[in-house]
Structures are given as C-alpha cells and as structure tokens.
Design a protein around this nucleic acid. Structure first.
Lengths: 148, 148
DNA sequence: ATGTAATGGTTGTTTTTGTAACCAACAACA
DNA sequence: TGTTGTTGGTTACAAAAACAACCATTACAT
C-alpha cells in the first residue's frame, strides 16, 4: 500500500496532464491550418505513414472507436484530404488513401510534428526520453480493447 | 531533425494513448459507484487531499478551465458530495468542502486509486517509474509554444 | 440453401465539452 | 464619489464525443 498518496504522483492524473499540455501546441497547428480534429490528424498520419488502409484497421491500430473513425474519415473525405475506394472482393470494406491535398497536408504536419517532438525532447535528458517512451508503450499497450 | 518518425514514438500520441488506457479502469469505478465524471473526481480529490478550497484555486492547481470546475462543483453539490460556503470578507468567492458523504466517497476512491496505482506500477521497473513520473511532471509543466 | 452470427461501416440521440458572453463583487485611481 | 478594470463564478449556445441502434455484406453452421 502506498503511503503519502498525492495527485502529483498518481499516474493516470500525471499522464492526463502531460498528454493534455503536450497535445495543445500541435493541436493548434492542425486545427488552424487544416481545420482538423484530433481523430482526423490521427487518421491522416496513419494513412501517410503506413499507406492505404481500411477504417477498421485504423481503428484497431489507434485504439479508436469505429464511429469516431467513421466520422473523421467522412470529414476528411468531404474536404478532399482522403479518398475512398471500394474493395472489389469484399464490398463492405473501403480502402482509404490520401489525395494529393491530403499528402501535402500530411507532409506539412509531419514536419511540424518532428520539430515539436524536438522541442519536447529538449526538456528531457536523453536517457529520460528513452525510458519515458518505453514506459508509455507498456502502459498504453495494456489495452482493455473491448469496443463494441 | 528526427529521422524515422513514427506515431509510436511521437510523444503527444504516446502520452494520449497511455493516458486514455490508464484512466479507463479508474474511470469505471468512480463512474459506476458515484456517477462522477473526470473533472468531478478531480475536484473531489483536491478537496479530500488539500482541504477547503475555492473553485478558482482548484482550477489553477488542476489547470482546468473555470467553466469545467464550475459545472463539476455544481453536480457535486447537487449530489451532496460538496458544500459551498460564502467567504465573509470577499463575497465573490465560495469555499468548498466535502460533506460526510463526499468524504466517504473520497476515502473509498482514494483507496481504489492507491491500489490501482500499485497495479500500474507492477508493469514498470521501479526506477522506470521514478523517471516516468519525473518526465511527466516536466512535460506537464511545459508552456505551449506556437508554430505560427 | 437457410438461419444465425459476425464484420465493416453509418446514422441518430443523448452527454460533455469548448467558447464566449455575462453578472456581481471588489480594486485602483482620478 | 465615478469610472475603469479585474476577479470569481455562472449561463447560453455551438461543437464534439459517447453510446446504442442500425444496414448491408460476408462467414459459418446446419
């Protein structure tokens, strides 16, 4: 049993605080430049980084509920960042790809992400960053992924 | 410049994933047992841990917008977890305290939080946990910088 | 085949949140 | 005294998320 409990050492609290703060600047960029929401840039990055993919694939990779993905894709499609292509075999699935516009947005945002990452890392010792990432992966991987 | 960019190493993404996953089980408890939302348990914990406090104090401590705090306090008050007391000197501020019911809920949830923290820590090496906390505190204190 | 379940995805409705405007009480100062 | 500005807090309205029900298609069993 842990004595001296404090919010500042309670991991879920700490994680949320750090997550919120660290997301803010980046959010400002994709919001201001492209009018995107959080799930939207995630979808964009999944397609940009890993290529063509279906909505459910994105959902399971990003641990995001399918309705969230669906609506993100819808908005991205409306704004011509993403294109849908029906699968010829299984007519339920739609393959998603970036349009030229989407690719350009991705390239731009990716470079912002890279330099933002730099900024964040400057506040940490190099070995601290390594351990931080490893720990976050462990904690984030314990997913009780039971989405309906 | 960081080559080999990946979502799995982009801190804002990693942080959000870990934060979401690690909040889930605990959220289930305060939601199921007391019908509380995230900001509500935070307010509850602030009062439980640090004693009487005003809404704006909670807001600045938890970096939470005042409307969020206001609504959380409102719901907590309606459900008799929290009581308001007007300041006799400055009639704008209201001092918040836990009711018996609120104190009981806090005690209960705090013990849940402590054992949940244990569970989370089991997934990490002891020194990993120390560094993780330190890094999260640093990142959580970061002032937003703009890429405009 | 045919009934049943599972998958990929969308839509509708209700909760929560974000944003901005607002009010009342105080503070500072001419 | 104004009169202007600030602070603590609430409210109203728009945006977004959560949740559940829903199609259409495919898979799988009899």
């Amino acid at each position: 049993m842990q004595r001296n409990f404090d919010l500042q050492s309670f991991l879920p609290y700490l994680l949320n605080q750090a997550a919120e703060v660290s997301s803010l600047s980046f959010q400002q960029v994709y919001k201001d430049r492209y009018g995107m929401l959080r799930t939207e840039w995630r979808v964009l990055f999944h397609l940009g980084l890993y290529g063509q993919m279906s909505a459910s694939e994105i959902g399971s990779r990003a641990k995001t509920h399918k309705t969230k993905v669906s609506r993100a894709v819808q908005r991205l499609t409306e704004r011509r960042f993403v294109e849908r292509a029906l699968d010829s075999v299984d007519r339920r699935v739609t393959h998603l790809t970036l349009t030229k516009r989407g690719q350009a947005a991705y390239d731009d945002l990716r470079s912002v992400a890279e330099s933002y990452e730099e900024t964040l890392l400057k506040q940490l010792e190099p070995d601290e960053a390594v351990i931080l990432r490893r720990a976050l992966l462990k904690l984030g991987g314990v997913a009780p992924c039971d989405f309906t």
